[in-house]
Amino acid sequence: MNEQGRFITFEGIDGSGKSTQARLLAEYLSAQGREVVLTREPGGSPGAEDIRKLVLEGDPDRWSAETELLLFTAARRDHLERLITPSVAAGKLVISDRFADSTRMYQGLGRAALRGLVDQLHELMIGREPDLTVLIDMDPEVALERALARAGEEERFEAFGGEMQRRMREGFLALAKEFSGRFVVIDGGRSVEEVAVDVQRAVSGRC
């Protein structure tokens, strides 16, 4: 692994295990002597965490898809300015649980056909893609059961149900083909340890 700063993201449907795998990769790379920043979206900076509460808690129909898109973009811009860009510039590995691909799915495909608007806002206000995106792929029904079992307050998207999960899985796999140069797809329907080994192999040599 080289010592240049890199930006790695984890994507997948709710309950796929991506958050666990992001954490395990951060621990693995730290043990290899790399300086790692583990973060998440929406969130990752104080302002973005405030916006996270607005979009992930409360009634699933609280915001229109257009309003959600603006909120997520505002959170991502703050996250980029205050954490991601300076950390990568300092030679650190930034690992984020979700980034713009989630917005392409949940706002661009899931609730309304806003993909064109998502991409326009991304180009205008964000202007960067990850160096590597790890997609944890798994059966949407199993993932939904896991997501609902978490019993936390942030049930914003799990509440949309199984059909949403199926559409999101198909959409994420389509994104992996569209951006094949930076995506790697990992089978998440196995043990946590088996998935983690495959993630480590995928990242080694690229970051």
Rank of each mutant, 00 (worst) to 15 (best):
R111W: 03
S102W: 04
R104Y: 07
A112T: 00
G108T: 04
V118A: 10
T85Q: 13
V88A: 07
V118K: 03
P86M: 08
S96G: 05
A100E: 14
G108V: 04
R115F: 06
S96T: 02
D101G: 10
R98F: 03
A90F: 03
G110V: 04
G91Q: 03
V118T: 05
I126H: 00
L109T: 09
S96H: 00
G91C: 11
D119A: 14
R82T: 06
D97A: 08
V88D: 13
V88C: 14
V94T: 02
L121N: 10
L83E: 12
M105E: 10
L117C: 05
I95H: 05
Y106I: 10
I84D: 02
V118G: 08
G108R: 05
A100D: 15
Q120Y: 11
L114D: 08
R115Q: 05
L109W: 11
L83S: 07
K92A: 05
G127S: 10
S102C: 13
S87C: 03
M105T: 06
A90Q: 15
A89W: 02
R115Y: 06
A89Q: 14
R111C: 12
V94M: 09
L114G: 06
G91L: 07
G116A: 10
R98S: 01
P86R: 01
A113M: 12
E123H: 12
P86K: 05
G110P: 08
L117Y: 07
M125E: 10
L114C: 03
Q107V: 03
Q120M: 07
D101A: 12
R115M: 09
R82G: 08
V94Q: 07
D101T: 02
G127D: 11
G127Q: 11
D119F: 00
I126D: 10
I126K: 13
M125N: 08
T103D: 09
L93T: 09
R115L: 15
Y106C: 14
I95Y: 02
E81F: 05
T103I: 02
A100K: 05
T103A: 12
L124R: 15
R82I: 00
G108A: 02
P86G: 14
S96E: 06
L121V: 04
K92W: 04
Q120C: 12
K92C: 12
F99S: 11
E123R: 13
I95D: 14
R82M: 07
I84R: 04
S96Q: 00
A89F: 06
A90C: 10
I95Q: 08
Q120T: 03
G91K: 00
G127H: 02
F99H: 07
L117N: 12
K92F: 01
G108P: 04
T85E: 13
R104V: 05
G110W: 00
T85W: 06
S87F: 01
R104C: 13
R111T: 01
R82E: 14
Q120A: 15
S87V: 02
M105K: 04
Q107F: 03
G116P: 12
F99G: 08
L109D: 10
Q107C: 07
Y106D: 13
A90T: 00
E123M: 11
M105Y: 03
I95T: 05
S87L: 00
A113F: 09
D119W: 02
M105G: 15
R82A: 01
K92H: 11
H122S: 10
L93M: 14
A89V: 05
S102V: 03
G110N: 04
R111S: 09
A90L: 11
A100H: 13
D119V: 01
T103G: 13
G110K: 05
F99I: 04
M125Y: 08
L83W: 03
